[in-house]
Simulated scan of single mutants.
Amino acid sequence: MLPADLTYMRTMIANVALAGWPGSGSWVLVDAGVATFADNIAKAANARFGIEKPHAIVLTHGHFDHVGSLHALLERWNVPVFAHEDELPYLTGMADYPEADPGVGGGLMARISPLYPHKGIDISRWVQPLPKDGSVPGMPGWRWVPTPGHTKGHVSLFREKDLSLIAGDAFITVKQTSAFAVLAQEEEIHGPPPYFTFDWQDAWKSVKRLDELKPRLAITGHGKPMEGEALAHGLAELARHFDRLAIPKPKSGSDKSDDFQLV
């Protein structure tokens, strides 16, 4: 069961989190989902908090399915956005993400991944780096944890008092390469979406870091929240066997180090 001051909303293929006490009028949006969901997010916020406008928006990272509705929300709300400093080039129009690799993971979602946007966006007017002390603006009791690998500046958010985790795409709870699994929201822990992950060794270190926190509850960027023994066991297994369960290996018959398929 989610804490009373934390909920999530699915935007087609990706989740956003809303943190704050219902009716308090003070809350924070974590990630901004896919495009065209600005109105849905605003209506859900107004119903839950009695006000649309959040204190801030915090980004786990800047991939298209986590910032798709961001610009529309910022034009509507005009609030600060916080992200890791290593993510800022992709949020200020200075850099683009690598193109998706459809050769990893198998499944329809992976095969159509070249169609997914990979260009950076420019929200220079609103974005600023997360505080270096690890605090999360507008979210007292939470701290941000560096979890690079899926992107250079990926972060997750953790609250010590109840061991709640907002993991972004450091790990996810659905097989994101499979269209059927995404539609059915089958619950199982996986590594980050492989077609957009740029550094697998860092991604493994990040999963180990999150496993060491022993979260009791996790909201991830894709899939349903997980808690309790299912989360603990699945995350521990992923941390222990990430090389077998998540890291792509060279396709048979290829000696290219970047020519991958999933184990």
Rank of each mutant, 00 (worst) to 15 (best):
L2S: 12
Y8F: 14
Y8A: 10
Y8H: 15
M9C: 09
R10H: 07
T11D: 08
M12R: 15
I13K: 08
I13L: 13
V16N: 08
A19F: 04
A19L: 10
W21R: 15
G23C: 10
S24C: 02
S26R: 09
L29M: 12
V30D: 01
A32K: 03
A35T: 14
A35M: 12
A38I: 07
D39F: 03
I41L: 10
K43I: 11
A47S: 13
I51M: 04
I51S: 11
P54E: 00
P54D: 00
H55W: 08
I57T: 07
H63G: 13
F64W: 14
D65C: 13
S69W: 01
S69H: 01
W77Q: 08
H84S: 13
E85A: 15
L91P: 04
L91M: 09
G93D: 10
A95P: 06
D96Q: 05
D96M: 09
D96L: 08
P98M: 04
A100V: 07
G103D: 06
V104M: 05
S113N: 04
L115F: 10
Y116I: 15
I121F: 05
I123P: 06
R125A: 15
P129V: 04
K132L: 13
G134L: 05
V136D: 04
G138A: 04
W142Q: 10
R143I: 11
W144G: 08
V145K: 00
H150D: 12
T151N: 03
V155Q: 00
V155G: 04
V155S: 01
D162C: 05
S164A: 12
L165K: 05
I166E: 01
A167D: 07
G168A: 10
D169F: 00
D169K: 02
T177K: 03
A179Q: 08
A179R: 10
D199R: 03
W204T: 10
S206Y: 04
S206D: 02
S206T: 10
L210H: 04
D211C: 15
E212V: 11
K214L: 08
I219Y: 00
H222P: 12
G223V: 01
P225H: 08
M226Q: 03
M226E: 02
E227H: 12
L231W: 01
A232M: 03
H233V: 15
L235V: 14
F242R: 10
L245Q: 14
L245H: 11
A246I: 13
I247C: 14
K249I: 15
K249C: 13
K249D: 10
K251T: 13
S252Q: 15
G253P: 09
